[in-house]
Design a protein around this nucleic acid. Structure first.
Length: 567
DNA sequence: TAGTAGGAAGGTA
DNA sequence: TACCTTCCTACTA
C-alpha cells in the first residue's frame, strides 16, 4: 500500500470514541489492512546492524507452519508438486456440515524450510496463493453473511446518534472472542526483506468436512523422521470430520511491524522500558481465554506445537538461535493480544453502560439477562430468543452449558454462550480490582450507609467516583444525562424512591422525585444550581437526538428511552 | 403550582 | 463540536 493510500485510510477511520454500546464483531475485519504502523515516526529509517542481522537470520531460517486438512473429495486431493500432503494430522469431529459447502478442503501443512523458501522466492507463491487455504475464501464469503455482520451496513444501529458503533483500531482484532484477523502474506511493498517466519490463522466455527487418508506415497512427510509424525500426532483417520482449523499468520504481524519503531524496540536485546512496555501481568483469565485451544480437545484435534503458544518449537535440528526468534515472535504478538484484551473490556464496559447492567453477570436480574440476550443477539443479526426462555437470574445463566444455550436459542445459542464466556473472562477477579460497578461506584446501596449520614452526605456517597478508578465514560463528570438516569434506574433498591421503571422492556420510567433527581444530577456534574427545570430541558434535547421521548400517552415526569437506549 | 415545550445564548471539555 | 447549562416565554394539567 503506498503512503498516500495509507494516509487516506487512516484519515477515514472513525476517530470518535463510542460513548456506549457493544462493538459489533463485524467491524473488526479491516483493521490490519488499514492500520499501517509504517506511518509512525522513524518508519523509513534504515535498519541498524543488529536489526539487519536479525532480518537476515529470519530469511535464512524461514520456518513456516501452516495447516491443511483434506476432504474426502477425490478431486480435492489432486495436489501439485509444490503442495504437501501431511500425514501428521488427526481429524476428528462430530456433526454438521451446515456451515460450509461440502468438499471444501482444509489444509494442515508443515512444509520443509527449503520448500517454503522456494515459495517465498517466487514472490507470488505463498501457501495461500496456491489455494491451499482456499476453503477459507469460501468460508469467509459464507461467514460474512451467516455469522457476522461484516460491515457497518449490516448493523442495525449504525446510525445511532451517539455513534456507538464507531470502531477504534483495536476493535478490529476481536471477533466473537476469536482473533479473526488474517493478514496477507508477503508484504511486496516493503523495502525490507520478506519476513515470513510463521503462518498462523484462527477461524471460529470452521465447519466439519469428511476427510480421507492421504497416501503415504504422495506425502512429503511420510518418512519416519517427521517430527510431527514422531509425536504420534496427525495420522489421518478416514472419514472423520474436523470442526475447526487453527492457523495464525504470524508473519503478517511481523510484516506489519517491521518498518516501525515498535518492531525496532521489540528487536532490541534490552528493550527500553519507556518505549516498550512490559507485558501486562493482569487479565490472566482473559489471556487464557484468548489463547484457549480447548476446542482442540473438544473436537479431538491434536494440537500442534505452535511456538507462540508453548514458547518453543520442535525442529528436527533445532537452531540454537531459533529459540530467540520464537521469543521475539511471542513478544510481538503480545501487543496484539493486549489490544484484544483492552477491547474486550471496553466492549463489556460499553455494553454495561448502554444496558444499565452490572459487568458481573452473577448480579444480573432476569430482566438484565433478557436485556443482554436481546442485545447480543442483535449484534450478530440473530432473531431475539423468546424472553420466557431466558427468565433466569445471572447466576443461573452462568451455569448453563453451551448445549442449554442452544436449546434456549437454537439460532444463536453458541454465539451467546461464547460471548458470555468472553464476558466472564473479561470480568476476572484481577480485572475486578480496577473495575467499579455502576451500582457500586455511582449508586451504591443505601444499606451500606450509616444511619447518621445526612441525605446530602448519603447522596454524595452514591455519586462520588474516582475517575482514576473508573474505567468508563459513565463515571466522573463526563457522564451523559441519559446514562446517569439509567444508572439510577439500575439500582432500584437505592433510587426507587426518586426514579423507577414503569416498563423496563420499553424503557419507560418515571421520575418520582424531580427535586432529588435534579440534585443528584447536579452533584454528579458539579452544578449546584441544577434543578429539574434545567434537567428536563436537557432531557428534551434528547427528543430530537432520538435518545429519549415522551410516552405516547404523555404523562407528567414520565419519559421513555428510544431504541436502542431502552435496552 | 408544577410540569411541558422549545428558542436562544453561553460554557466546557 | 457535542453536550449540556442557563434563561426565557408560552402553555397545560
Amino acid at each position: 500500500m503506498v503512503l498516500a493510500d495509507r494516509q487516506t485510510v487512516m484519515e477515514s477511520m472513525p476517530q470518535t470514541v463510542p460513548s456506549a454500546g457493544f462493538t459489533p464483531p463485524c467491524d473488526y475485519s479491516n483493521f490490519a489492512e488499514n492500520f499501517d504502523l509504517s506511518l509512525l515516526p522513524g518508519g523509513d529509517q534504515p535498519l541498524s546492524p543488529p536489526e539487519q542481522f536479525y532480518m537476515e537470520k529470519l530469511q535464512s531460517i524461514q520456518p513456516k507452519i501452516f495447516t491443511t486438512f483434506y476432504p474426502s473429495s477425490p478431486e480435492s486431493q489432486s495436489l501439485t508438486d509444490n503442495e504437501f500432503q501431511p500425514d501428521f494430522q488427526k481429524l476428528l469431529a462430530d456433526d454438521s456440515k451446515k456451515y460450509l459447502p461440502p468438499q471444501s478442503p482444509i489444509h494442515l501443512e508443515v512444509p520443509q524450510p527449503n520448500s517454503f523458501g522456494q515459495q517465498s522466492n517466487s514472490g507470488s507463491l505463498s501457501p495461500y496463493s496456491q489455494g491451499l487455504l482456499s476453503p477459507n475464501d469460501q468460508f469467509n464469503a459464507y461467514r460474512e453473511q451467516s455469522f457476522y455482520p461484516s460491515s457497518p451496513e449490516y448493523s442495525l444501529y449504525t446510525a445511532s446518534p451517539s455513534s456507538i458503533y464507531s470502531k477504534s483500531p483495536c476493535e478490529e482484532y476481536l471477533q466473537v472472542g476469536f482473533i479473526k484477523k488474517e493478514i496477507s502474506l508477503n508484504n511486496s511493498t516493503s523495502p525490507l526483506p520478506n519476513l515470513s517466519p510463521f503462518g498462523i490463522k484462527e477461524e471460529p466455527f470452521l465447519p466439519n468436512f469428511n476427510v480421507s487418508p492421504v497416501s503415504p506415497a504422495t506425502s512429503n512427510y511420510s518418512n519416519s523422521s517427521s517430527p510431527v509424525q514422531s509425536d504420534g500426532v496427525g495420522v489421518f483417520e478416514p472419514h472423520k470430520q474436523i470442526k475447526q482449523e487453527s492457523t495464525v499468520d504470524f508473519s503478517e504481524i511481523l510484516g506489519e511491524f517491521q518498518n516501525t519503531e515498535t518492531l525496532r524496540g521489540l528487536l532490541n536485546q534490552k528493550p527500553n522500558p519507556q518505549t516498550v512496555p512490559d507485558p501486562p501481568k493482569d487479565h490472566q483469565l482473559l489471556r487464557q481465554f484468548l489463547r484457549d485451544t480447548s476446542f482442540q480437545k473438544k473436537y479431538n484435534i491434536h494440537p500442534i506445537d505452535f511456538p507462540f503458544v508453548n514458547g518453543d518449537i520442535k525442529m528436527e535440528e533445532p537452531d540454537p538461535e531459533h529459540g530467540d526468534l520464537m521469543m521475539k515472535c511471542e513478544e510481538q504478538i503480545e501487543p496484539v493480544l493486549n489490544l484484544a484484551i483492552e477491547q474486550v473490556r471496553k466492549d463489556v464496559d460499553d455494553t454495561c453502560t448502554l444496558l444499565g447492567i452490572s459487568p458481573d453477570p452473577a448480579k444480573w436480574s432476569p430482566s438484565d439477562v433478557i436485556s443482554w440476550i436481546r442485545w447480543t443477539s442483535r449484534q450478530f443479526n440473530y432473531a431475539e430468543p423468546l424472553a420466557e426462555s431466558w427468565d433466569i437470574s445471572g447466576n443461573d445463566l452462568l451455569v448453563l452449558s453451551e448445549k442449554e444455550f442452544v436449546t434456549r436459542a437454537p439460532q444463536g445459542g453458541m454465539i451467546l454462550h461464547a460471548q458470555l464466556e468472553i464476558w466472564k473472562a473479561a470480568y476476572s477477579e484481577d480485572t475486578m480490582k480496577n473495575w467499579p460497578l455502576p451500582s457500586e461506584n455511582c449508586v451504591s446501596s443505601n444499606a451500606s450507609s450509616g444511619g447518621d449520614i445526612s441525605e446530602d452526605e448519603d447522596d454524595e456517597s452514591h455519586l462520588t467516583s474516582d475517575p482514576n478508578k473508573a474505567g468508563t465514560s459513565r463515571t466522573g463528570s463526563h457522564i451523559h444525562l441519559w446514562q446517569f438516569l439509567k444508572e439510577l434506574l439500575s439500582d432500584q433498591q437505592s433510587n426507587g424512591s426518586c426514579i423507577r421503571w414503569l416498563d423496563r422492556g420499553k424503557g419507560i420510567f418515571k421520575i418520582e422525585d424531580s427535586v432529588k433527581v435534579a440534585r443528584l444530577w447536579g452533584k454528579r456534574k458539579n452544578r449546584p444550581a441544577m434543578n429539574y427545570d434545567k434537567l428536563s430541558r436537557s432531557i428534551r434535547q434528547y427528543y430530537k437526538k432520538g435518545i429519549m421521548k415522551k410516552t405516547e400517552r404523555s404523562q407528567r415526569l414520565v419519559y421513555q428511552f428510544c431504541h436502542p437506549y431502552n435496552l
